[in-house]
Nucleic acid binder design. Sequence first.
DNA 1: AATTCGACCAACCGCGACCGA
DNA 2: ATCGGTCGCGGTTGGTCGAAT
Length: 342
Amino acid sequence: MGRAPCCDKANVKKGPWSPEEDSKLKDYIERFGTGGNWIALPQKVGLKRCGKSCRLRWLNYLRPNIKHGGFSDEEDRIIINLFITIGSRWSIIAAQLPGRTDNDIKNYWNTKLKKKLMGLIPNSHHRKQPVPRPPQPRTSSLPPPPMLFPSSYEIQSYQQQQHQLPLLSTYSPPLSKGWNFSYLNNNYLFTTDNSASASATTTTTTTSSSATTTVSSILSSGYEPLPVKDQDILDFGSDPGSCSNLDQQHQQPQATTMIKQEEGELQGQRDNNGQMMDAGFDFDQGIGIGHWAEKMNDCFGIDCDYLSSSGSGRSGMNWMMDHYAGGGNQLGVDQEKGLYYF
DNA sequence: AATTCGACCAACCGCGACCGA
DNA sequence: ATCGGTCGCGGTTGGTCGAAT
């Protein structure tokens, strides 16, 4: 049995409100109130509208002291911080911003603020799922998948033991998952789809040991280059000075977002200009991890220098890598830059 | 000048929560 | 405790407008 309709949809007007309708509704509510019953209101007012539509029109547009557009930096900051803390609870967020409606904030977030936060990544560069991910069954001809990020997370020793690979800034060894390989060459990550991985395996092994991989040889092996923008990288560091992913000219972090660890306590978030934006986050406590984990699904890789070292914050980061960043299926590592691609 | 595309935003829809009978 | 009506929320849709081609 379906849900009973809130009104007779055949006899209600839909679409944009006319000034006359606005005037009728506004005048009535200002004189008599809503009466606590939106469903009955349209008939009292003399409008051929659904009660829900009246409610929405009043709350989002007609009621006094409504502000539209022109969000201030302070409002931006509040929205971002609250979104990080509580997610898309627009009504709660709106309650903190006098004159703003949940709908307005939601629209503002979806059309502008989200892009601003994500570092103004052009659509062509913003890949929801930039790299093919498991589960794809490996073929028997492929080598067994390496155990990436074992409990100790000894990345470098693992690389050296398993591959005896040189670590070059322009080349990322195939720390991959058996069904796919990746290379970092300048600003491109090369990857294949699953169908090409079998034939690519030989090439990968050969070229990786020689460390003479060229763009053309990779392309001829069926690899598709994907441009990697700095903004695609989630950057976990301590401050701009120690951030390995810097704009060399301005010495500012170029990552989409940067998470700061401050004496193991409160973590802050920097916007793309390096401005600190307060955000409750604690790696070791897991606070806020869900939010950043979601971000990891949106970005292309992460930059986390202290992942391969000891210190506070590491366990939480490891946990996040295990649970969200492909579950240990990282595609590759640029050891010199400290970039882990997944 | 015409067309296409994307950004923006008002409005709609459906679902869960809430409340009173 | 149950049920039906209503409210409120968040996701989605669709129209409009300006910029780009």
